[in-house]
Structure formats: structure tokens, C-alpha cells
Simulated assay, not measured.
Amino acid sequence: MADQHCPSQREVMMSAELHIPGFSIRRITPDEWDTAAQVWNQAVSHGPVTGEDLRKRDAEQHSWGYTAFTLAVVDREQIAGLASVYQNPGMCRSS
């Protein structure tokens, strides 16, 4: 069986850069994890998360060599949306 290609974090981030009129989409900053958790909890009703939960998952993913990032959708300097990308253990690692 041929090896499965796993995109590098750079490849994934390049494809994640979007431009939507009226919004800014960018990586979350270290001081925004708690706000990101509030937005997440409004959208996902099962099992609330904290900013520390999101921070920890991001740090774990990077320490395992997995691709992981959280993007914030910003409207008038406020986080209006969120995208969190991470890999489950057992998936291929980024190169």
C-alpha cells in the first residue's frame, strides 16, 4: 500500500487563508483562547470547553507532530466565528 500523503502545516495553513469582504480570518492569538471557548460553547452544545482546554489541545497536537491550528473569524475587532483543525491520534503526521 502506498504511503498516504499528509500535508504539512504550511500547506494546510496556505489553503486556510480566506478573504471574505467585511471579515478578517486569522490565527487565534494567545490572549483570545477564552473568548474562542465562549464562541465554541455557543455553537456546540455538548460538553462545554474552556480556553485552557483549547490551548491544551493545540499544544498537545503540536508536541505530537500533528497539524493543528485555530482560526478566528473577526468582525469589527470581535471574534464572530471559529475554526479549529486538529488530528486524532493514529492519523498520519505532517511532514
Rank of each mutant, 00 (worst) to 15 (best):
S63Q: 14
I79N: 02
F23V: 11
E32Q: 14
R57E: 15
V49W: 03
Q42F: 09
H46V: 11
T67L: 00
Y86Q: 04
P89R: 11
V12E: 06
R57N: 15
I79S: 01
P7H: 11
P21H: 04
V85P: 02
S24D: 13
R10G: 08
S15E: 06
T67E: 06
V49C: 03
R57M: 13
E60F: 07
Y66L: 10
C6I: 13
L82K: 02
F23P: 03
E32D: 03
A68N: 07
L82V: 01
I20G: 00
V12S: 11
C92Y: 11
A80Y: 08
V49K: 08
Q38T: 10
D3M: 14
M14L: 15
A16N: 15
C6W: 11
E52T: 12
C92W: 08
I20Q: 00
E17Y: 02
P30M: 05
A80P: 03
R26A: 04
C6H: 07
S15Q: 08
S94K: 13
G81L: 07
R93N: 01
Q61L: 06
L54Q: 02
Q87V: 00
E11S: 05
A83S: 08
D75E: 09
R55T: 13
F23I: 09
K56E: 15
Q42P: 01
A72S: 15
Q42T: 10
R26D: 04
E17H: 04
E77T: 12
H19N: 14
A80S: 13
N88Y: 09
T70K: 04
F69Q: 13
L18P: 00
R76M: 06
H46W: 10
A36P: 04
W64C: 08
T67K: 04
A68C: 14
C6Q: 06
I79H: 09
A43F: 09
A36K: 00
G90I: 03
L54E: 02
D34C: 05
V12Y: 12
T29N: 10
Q61C: 11
Q78K: 13
L54W: 00
D53I: 06
S84Q: 13
V74K: 01
Q78V: 12
R76Y: 00
P48R: 12
T67Q: 07
V73S: 10
E32N: 01
T67C: 13
M13A: 10
L54A: 06
S95A: 14
V39D: 07
E11Q: 15
M91Q: 07
P48F: 02
Q78C: 07
G47K: 10
V73H: 11
F23L: 15
A16P: 04
M13F: 12
P7K: 08
P7R: 01
I20S: 04
S8E: 05
V39G: 06
L54R: 05
L54C: 01
Q87E: 07
I25H: 02
E77D: 15
N41M: 13
G81W: 03
E17P: 01
T50A: 05
A83E: 02
A83R: 05
A37C: 07
A37P: 02
D53N: 14
H19F: 14
T50S: 15
E17I: 04
W33E: 05
R57G: 15
A37R: 06
V44W: 12
D75G: 00
A43Y: 11
Q42E: 14
M13S: 10
I28N: 02
L18D: 06
K56P: 00
E77Q: 13
M14R: 14
W40C: 03
V44H: 10
Y86C: 10
V44C: 05
W33Q: 02
